[in-house]
Design a protein around this nucleic acid. Structure first.
Lengths: 330, 330
DNA sequence: CTGAAAGCGCTTACAG
DNA sequence: CTGAAAGCGCTTACAG
């Protein structure tokens, strides 16, 4: 199959190359007659514009990159990255923007700046997720001049758009619900401090409680498991009547430990995220649901808005407290 | 930030544009002296070649596309697409090929042929997964002239590379193990017939058993659930001492139904895939593990081989029978 | 070993 | 309303 170019179409339609280009780019000043001839010729030949040539020659680039950090390291059970990918790609399908996906990691971040990366690929806007405060790209965001929206991230630079649920409010409300339900001693099990969401979730918890008790398990299932066993051995576990983990995965680690200790009915358990696993464990997990699909779509919408109008948005998406078997909250 | 081009580098290094290009493309006939000057200049300016221009001007394109069908429709618990994405992207990172990811679906397949799609994006090789026999792309593969490897798919066209586990052997061996263990009546719960893996898995089962009993649940959790309830009501469920589902998701549907019927200890249960959920249910699920990460990497390796040597490979990746609580098999 | 020049497939002022 | 021509940033024979 020979490659069909704009010249072939022009020749068959008996018009100039520029007219063909005009038709394909929806210029106004083209007669219906010409439009039709071009369209028919294009269809007959099965012509599709070459996107490399297109982005090279046009000033206005039209590609939005979704950059996900550290997906390799991610636990298999967490579908968040996939939901982001499909949310963004679905939204962009109905626009004229092209969607490209890249995964990054610390090594790649060190090799090439985000800006260089965008130049290389003619990127006009980026959606980014999974960054830690220690990542080179995180620092770079402070003086980044391309439209960008970050998911689940706090950035000092106002020009960086953000989308997430109101994490502070969510953990505040969950904690409040627990207090209202009569729980006296709530252990907040946080992830690591390099993720900005950790701070915010912890803040919400602190606001709702007089004597905050906090432990850290690095957003890791087995670390959480070990921590609970450890607390048990130090006779401290009995102090708490409920554990509120900052992620479902950590909550599941706790769940396994509590089952092993035979304490699953004594100590209540709450997670955060509502990953798929949360509804398949026994007992099923009470948690905070964030609608990742919506977050992804809003992110896509907001970059486009930024590109087209220069307006930066900071959107908070709705969350929901989900009561299941591991803790009664309503 | 102005965009740095090859001219800027050439100017600073005081050489011609072609020399710069030669350096960046590892041509042999360049003096060390020139190489160094160019590299220094490039570093000083933070130059990164523009990939659109590169692919446009060079004959040898260097982009491998991973095309996943219907990921939107996919259940959240199934991490397979994400593992494929990260496996392929990780492998390609260590090559000179660029990785691009696209999701497709029936609508998009109808709008644009796979060939058109590849032309549009200057694709030199494709890895594809998730196709049904009813998909337009599936038909197109029969006379496709670009290097392509399909994951989990049987294609008549020998030129299409394939990678998967030996599905027939896997389900044969699982069935044999059950028989050996003394199970008398094995119900094989298959998915839908539009996926070529269904045929193969069923074939393996049939080979291992005298009186095949087969039902279909469309690879769907709740369909499987309903089916079991239905069999129970028709008094047929008691006939079986084990159910072998062609996917973990369907097995989980069965598991829920059996629990609800209070029969989870009477009837054993086996799944297929070893998705994350399989080890989180109660009881945990006996299943066939396929190592998706390896499948993805082999797929990437094979397209490249195809591109560079013209050789098509049909690779079978190792599988493993995993015994957990839902059925004893060893 | 190095450079001048054509060309990849498109877009976009500009002229008419 | 339409076309000729320059240019996007690179690669690649070709000449020297």
């Amino acid at each position: 199959m020979k490659k069909i170019t704009i010249r072939d179409v022009a020749k068959l339609a008996e018009v100039s190359v520029s007219s063909v280009s005009h038709v394909f780019n929806d210029y106004e000043d083209i007669s219906e007659e010409t439009k039709k001839r071009v369209r028919d010729a294009a269809k007959e030949l099965g012509y599709i514009p070459n996107s490399a040539a297109r982005s090279l020659s046009s000033k206005q680039k039209k590609t939005i990159a979704l950059i996900l950090n550290d997906i390799d390291a991610i636990v298999r059970g967490v579908a968040m990255p996939l939901e982001i990918i499909s949310g963004v790609s679905e939204y962009l399908d109905n626009t004229t923007y092209e969607f490209v996906f890249y995964s990054t990691n610390l090594k790649k971040q060190k090799e090439k700046t985000l800006r260089q990366f965008c130049n290389e690929h003619n990127i006009s806007g980026v959606i980014i997720q999974g960054l830690r405060t220690t990542d080179p790209y995180y620092k770079e965001l402070n003086e980044f001049d391309l439209p960008v929206v970050a998911i689940d991230l706090h950035v000092a630079n106002e020009k960086v758009g953000t989308v997430s649920i109101d994490n502070e409010k969510a953990s505040y409300e969950m904690t409040k619900a627990l207090v209202r339900k009569g729980f006296k001693n709530i252990l907040f099990l946080n992830g690591d401090s390099k993720a900005t969401v950790s701070h915010v979730r912890e803040k919400g918890y602190r606001k709702a409680v007089k004597n905050p008790k906090i432990a850290y398990a690095d957003y890791n299932e087995s670390t959480a498991f070990d921590l609970i066993i450890d607390l048990f051995e130090k006779k401290e576990l009995g102090t708490y009547d409920v554990i509120f983990a900052a992620s479902d995965l950590m909550a599941i680690g706790c769940l396994k430990a509590l089952k092993e200790l035979g304490l699953i009915n004594q100590i209540a358990l709450v997670g955060f995220d509502d990953i798929t696993l949360a509804s398949y464990t026994t007992p099923t997990l009470t948690t905070v649901r964030q609608d990742v699909m919506t977050i992804a779509k809003v992110a896509a919408k907001n970059v486009i808005k930024h590109i087209e109008t220069g307006k930066v948005a900071h959107t908070l998406v709705a969350f929901e407290l989900i009561e299941r078997q591991s803790a009664k909250i309503f």
